[in-house]
């Protein structure tokens, strides 16, 4: 109950504080530079120069404090020792270069980068195309989209039920092993199986992200001008040809957007690995490795260095996004 009041009052204070700031600062501005009287024209012009910054103020404060400052601080910390007391130059990065676990994380992250966006996009495209003209298509879409709402941890529990292992001869209660044994195979401890386990963790993310890809690609498919499709059909193109030669090329831009968006999710993947294997048995990824060093080993130098590596990996996408956004503004 106490908690309830705390939360309620915070919402109230937060909302009230925001409104008070925006309203109050506007009021003060109008008082100092009244849009009336002898100098009204001058005042309005000057007030209009200041007002945007009043509107933007809190956002800029939050963005710089919670996103810009940390990037700089992380960079600074990555050049210092474990508790940030001594400058060590690039020692942390040199250590990273020689660290086997880090290399494993990099390799795994690259595999994730190859597999997850590709599979999610392909399945998303398939789902979008298949459900598009069906009577029950929207229900089908909802169900494929649904995993988006499920937390990575929840997904971890769900898939753990699927990957569960029982010794050969016992009743398999994990769906995967059940299928394998029904087909005459041997049940496996999937999550400890090198090579397979990383891939099985990726499946979880593919399962979550396919809905996202489907929703966006479905909208793009609908945006294709009918005439191009009709013309192709009149010329005798088969449904497959229409799909691959007419539709897909026209939505290439959207596919790229979906791909990069999922790529960013993948680079930051943490929860799935954290709760399902915690990076054991060769499944380590950068985000989880960073967590290990920062909050288990309490070495902020090495932790920050790994975080900066992540930051560097997303930078090309960041630049590409900015480039595209600016092109659109013009």
């Amino acid at each position: 109950m106490e908690l309830f009041w705390l939360a309620t009052s915070t919402i109230f204070i937060g909302v009230f504080g925001c409104v008070a700031w925006f309203w109050g600062s506007n009021w003060v501005l109008d008082r100092i530079l009244p849009p009336r009287g002898p100098k009204s024209g001058d005042n309005i012009r000057r007030a209009n120069q200041i007002r945007p910054w009043l509107f933007l103020g809190p956002a800029i404060l939050f963005l710089s404090m919670y996103l810009v400052y940390p990037v700089i601080d992380s960079l600074w910390r990555s050049l210092h020792n474990a508790n940030g007391s001594r400058f060590v130059g690039t020692a942390n990065y040199q250590w990273l270069a020689g660290d086997a676990k880090f290399r494993e994380s990099m390799v795994n992250n690259m595999l994730w980068l190859l597999v997850v966006p590709a599979l999610a996009t392909v399945f998303g495209l398939l789902a979008a195309q298949l459900t598009d003209r069906l009577k029950w298509g929207s229900i089908g879409k909802s169900l494929i989209f649904m995993p988006m709402a499920i937390s990575f941890v929840g997904a971890g529990v769900i898939w753990r039920f699927i990957y569960e292992y029982r010794a050969a001869g016992e009743t398999q209660i994990g769906l995967l092993n059940y299928i394998v044994t029904q087909l005459g195979g041997q049940p496996q401890l999937w999550l400890t199986l090198p090579g397979w386990n990383s891939f099985l963790l990726m499946i979880v993310l593919v399962w979550i992200q396919t809905g996202f890809a489907m929703v966006i690609l479905s909208a793009a498919l609908r945006g294709i001008p009918e005439e191009t499709i009709e013309a192709a059909i009149l010329d005798g193109a088969s449904p497959l040809q229409v799909f691959f030669k007419i539709k897909v090329p026209q939505i290439m831009g959207t596919i790229a957007v979906v791909w990069t968006t999922i790529t960013i999710v993948v680079l930051k993947v943490f929860d799935i690995v954290f709760v399902m294997t915690n990076g054991q048995w060769g499944t380590q990824v950068l985000a989880n490795y960073m967590y290990d060093w920062s909050f288990r080993a309490n070495d902020t130098g090495r932790g920050s260095a790994i975080a900066i590596v992540l930051m560097i990996l997303v930078t090309p996408i960041m630049i590409w996004n900015i480039y595209n956004a600016r092109k659109e503004v013009r």
Binding site: L267, K268, I308, L310, V329
Partner: peptide
């Protein structure tokens, strides 16, 4: 325009970078 671009850029900053400093 610069601020808008900055917002687009900040969209992809990995959370991991922010944890220790914050």
């Amino acid at each position: 325009a610069l601020l808008t671009a900055a917002v687009v850029g900040l969209l992809v900053v990995p959370l991991q970078v922010a944890l220790i400093p914050l």
